[in-house]
Design a protein around this nucleic acid. Structure first.
Lengths: 348, 348
DNA sequence: CGTTACTTCGGTATCGTTACCGGAAACAAT
DNA sequence: ATTGTTTCCGGTAACGATACCGAAGTAACG
């Protein structure tokens, strides 16, 4: 089934302008060795014919496309989405275009396979460099410019932008402990993610530093979605001695937790305080404002672009791994803990 | 500054396997005239070398890439974002990959120019077909498969997916009128968008049908952002006789309006009822749930993919313009209007 | 006027891949 | 033994663009 191929090529432009393709190519690439009037004439013809050059052909020959690629697992995750936004913002300032490659969820191919495929697909083909968000692949061939955002491994095989997850978790816990909470639940994320692991570490370290016991029942592991956040919180509430505060390892989980708490007839922060992690857009206004750890996701995207451009230009890179600072944003889901009447097994 | 180009090509595979490039190409494209053992041998070599074919070269030659392109103005707009999600979901089921082209905000080039550029860029180069979200361009050369989502013009030059904006607005107004509201404010969107125009029409038509006066002061035009929603609502509240209900032409505006109302010391829906339009994700839980008109954005993306695939396969298309139905989702931002003491200029 | 230098442009090779044609076996049929 | 008929595979020509080389033409110089 042959497609009608009626795109206008550089040949057509050359013919219409009465010059060679070489000359047209020079005009397209703003080379300076072309006469003023021929330049303008060719430009006019280009506009008349509505010609735009084929990215495929260009990139094949010249290896300089001024396009950067972004490989992202799932746009439905707010983390990925915000990185995309940041990258987008940074790209706007530059003379680059952005191509986002997304594989969606789980098809028949596993993501690790698809990811490598996509990277190869974009590279050596179309883009000058690639940013990969939450990559699972163990190794990339480092022959081309590539920056990873929040990689699953702590390896430094490739340049990366990583949030200071452990320190962020520490600051969240510090806040809750400072408010007098002693029994603090944790809702974690997918254990295959480096970020989830580091936040859990922060939770544990914080308790250790405060000389508080580590109750495994208080640690519930979800998958960073609102649904699992809801269920994890239910589990915590069902405990014989439920926590007075919950630290959720991401904002979506925190939303789910708040929902569960409200559905259980309790209030936030009246009965239970909540701290999230991420500071996604909704967190500023939802439920009156979620207290959360800002990891500046959008800025992570920006930094990634900066690093990538540096790599593309073959300039030396100062920080091979950029650690994005985190900051606690205090809003309205936390309250000082007021001790109640001690729990007695048989109350009269 | 020459880039290290060390990607493995089909030539390398052929050499390593001791066959011709033609044979390797046949294996890659699953042609059936290859002997069993050579097939397997080549596959083995491909895996060993970690070869993946160059999208650029492939598409240049064969015009069949199994990639569909998505050109989107701004991922920061929730409408666009949700369409992307829908497209993403639909793509997952198919043997296609998705390439999102986004131009970000306003660079030195205007969007109309960039848009046409992107379409040309992707087409004839890389993708088998394109979906364009909220396109501004007047005309696309219709030589290649293209589907528009929510085009600015009502033209039928190309296949499109459009929400039933006027009818949706009608249903929102019907709801408010049914609750007894007679003075209803309207917060509109960018007047260059077809969808914004149609929703405003619905607002006006509804008032006309109900034999209510059309007060121009009650119509405030923003740009579909939360910020302008806020300011528009402030304008409405500052009116000598403020409305008892507000119909915002999209959910983000509605959020802004609610914020403004709360900041003014009033409550929703206690003092003022709010209806939005879109039903984006946040609307289900924000402020206890926003009453809004669902336009099934995600499904619009899905439908667009279906149409595009049909076009690519050269099959006949039944509905050139698909009109997505809308449905009012009643949540918790509306209340029956209870008449208060009539307003008197000089109260004692 | 001859030589040199610079500007401006055309021709050709090439990027990595697939479409197409045709050829060499292998096998079957007469 | 000759003649089809498969089956499998290699060679070659594109696809659309840019890099490179070199050739005209013009200007400048001694």
């Amino acid at each position: 089934m042959p497609r009608k191929k009626s795109t206008v090529t550089i040949q057509d432009v050359a013919a219409a302008a009465g010059v060679s393709v070489s000359t047209v190519s020079r005009v397209l690439n703003n080379k300076d060795d072309v006469a003023e009037d021929t330049y303008e004439n060719i430009q006019r013809v280009i506009n008349e014919l509505g010609y735009t050059s084929s990215l495929a052909a260009k990139s094949m020959r010249s290896r300089q496309t001024n396009v950067i690629g972004l490989v992202v697992t799932d746009l439905n995750q707010s983390f990925c989405l915000n990185v995309v936004k940041g990258v987008n913002q940074a790209i706007e300032q530059l003379d680059y275009d952005l191509l986002v490659y997304t594989g969606g969820g789980s098809g028949n191919r596993t993501w690790a396979v698809r990811e490598r495929q996509y990277v190869s697909l974009l590279n050596g083909s179309i883009t000058d460099g690639i940013i990969v968000v939450t990559p699972t692949a163990e190794t990339f061939s480092t022959h081309y410019p590539l920056v990873a955002v929040d990689p699953h491994l702590d390896s430094t095989d490739f340049p990366a932008v990583i949030a200071t997850n452990r320190i962020g978790a520490l600051s969240a816990m510090e806040h809750l402990l400072g408010l007098g909470h002693r029994r603090i639940g944790f809702i974690g994320g997918r254990p295959d993610l480096q970020s989830a692991i580091r936040r859990l570490e922060g939770y544990k370290d914080s308790l250790r530093q405060a000389n508080l016991p580590l109750d495994p029942d208080l640690i519930q592991i979800g998958d960073f979605t609102q649904e699992t956040g809801y269920r994890c919180a239910q589990n915590l509430l069902a405990l014989p001695e439920p926590p007075t505060a919950i630290f959720a390892a991401n904002d979506k989980s925190a939303f789910g937790a708040i929902e569960a708490i409200i559905d259980a007839g309790l209030s936030v922060p009246g009965d239970i305080s909540i701290v999230g992690f991420d500071n996604i857009e909704e967190s500023s206004y939802i439920y009156g404002g979620l207290t959360t750890v800002d990891q500046f996701i959008v800025d992570m995207g920006r930094v990634a672009v900066d690093m990538l451009i540096t790599l593309i230009q073959n300039k030396p890179i100062e920080n091979y791994v950029y650690r994005m600072p985190t900051r606690l944003r205090v809003r309205n889901t936390c309250q000082a803990f007021v001790p109640k009447i001690p729990y007695t097994p048989d109350r009269l």
